[in-house]
Simulated assay, not measured.
Amino acid sequence: EDDIAGSIDSFRFMAGAARATTSLAAGEYAEDHLSVIVREPLGVVGVVTPWNYPLLMAAWKIAPILAAGNTIVLKPSEQTPLTTLKFAELVADLLPAGVFNVVTGLGPVVGARLSEHPKVDMIALTGSVNSGRAVARGAAETIKRVHLELGGKAPVVIFADADLSAAAESLRAAGYWNSGQECGAGCRVLVHESVAERFTQLLVEQVRTLVVGEPTAGADVEIGPLISKAHYDRVLNHLERAQADGAKAALGGGALEGPGYFVAPTVLTDVPEGAACTLEEIFGPVVTVETFSTEEEAIARANEVPYGLAASAWTLNPQLGHDVASRLEAGTVWVNSHLVLANEMPWAGFKSSGYGRDLSAYALDDYSRTKHVMHNKAR
């Protein structure tokens, strides 16, 4: 449902944004010379999309790239190519031949070729940090533009005065949506020590109600399996390491019995400061809970991860909320909410989470180039 509804809204927004672009006003900035800003297409944009939202992540790229006047060569994830191929089939009679192209294959082969190809003017990727590094290295030879939306490890900072019930209810979705295979997931809770026990109890109560099952088993199913055996094994390895390091599973903590790559929705408590499970992206239905004593400690630890995609702060003090939001190193910071997106607002990260903006009019800027034309009008 997210994939379809979000994709529709992405195209509708970009269709309107392309008709209402803004730029510096034309004017006489130098005597007797009229300056005009022109936004031009870049040309051919190579795109590499991930498997977690295969249609939506493609739409986030396709809509602004086309709206800015470019052509596209898109490589979907080898694990989820079918929605992209179906999309190409559906729009085949809407676009001129050659405007939208899909090439399937593996990242190290097809993705690498797109990055390196001298006739590709820009490469845009949504994926892992390692994939981002590979794409940036490949693009370096031709000095092409690079747009990277990479991983995340979103801290959720809960202060003593927060609405704990609201925070727990929000994380029921924000921490576990799409089986936690979500780069903005609220997966790393930092909660003030005075309310940690109560918050953990509320979170466990919320997460325990999640319905896990085969996606076609009924409308009540909320969490399905992980994407692949390899990813399933990776998430389970993270859980084993975390518990070996001293973390305790207040809920879940391992695989679910039966066929399929199902991991139980997990809440890890008593997590030691600096544990790998708090710093590395697990990308599964796992939320860790740590405690802090002071505001300064909370901010420092929230910012210690190499990622900077998203974060949230929970407090009923508006001044504290504003201040903390300004100090968290993330491209999106929610206050008393988490994982709410709007096509009108940009989405992208700082630090190892990449650069370039998806969604919003900022994406149109990313996929076009600015030309200054100056006319001598002296007579």
Rank of each mutant, 00 (worst) to 15 (best):
V263D: 07
G274C: 04
E281Y: 04
V271K: 01
N303E: 05
P306Q: 12
R301I: 03
W334Y: 08
A361D: 14
D365C: 00
H322I: 13
N317P: 05
A264N: 13
Y367R: 06
Y362V: 07
E280Q: 15
V263A: 06
G331H: 08
Y362H: 15
V305M: 07
E257M: 00
V305G: 13
E281S: 08
A298R: 13
T315F: 13
A310Q: 15
V271F: 02
D270T: 03
E273F: 00
V373I: 15
D365H: 09
T291R: 09
G258A: 07
A255D: 04
R369W: 06
K351P: 05
T315H: 12
P285A: 00
L251C: 09
D358Q: 13
P272E: 07
E257F: 00
G321W: 01
A313P: 02
R301H: 08
L309N: 05
G356P: 03
L268E: 04
N317R: 10
P346M: 11
V286R: 01
G308A: 13
Y261D: 14
L364A: 11
T269L: 00
V305S: 15
P318C: 07
C277L: 10
E290R: 14
C277V: 15
K351M: 03
S352R: 10
L251M: 11
W347V: 15
R357F: 06
T266S: 13
E329D: 15
S368D: 05
L316R: 15
T370A: 01
R357K: 15
G356Q: 02
I299F: 05
S337R: 08
T266V: 09
S337M: 07
A302M: 04
T278A: 11
Y307D: 08
V286W: 04
V335H: 07
R327P: 15
L359T: 11
L339V: 13
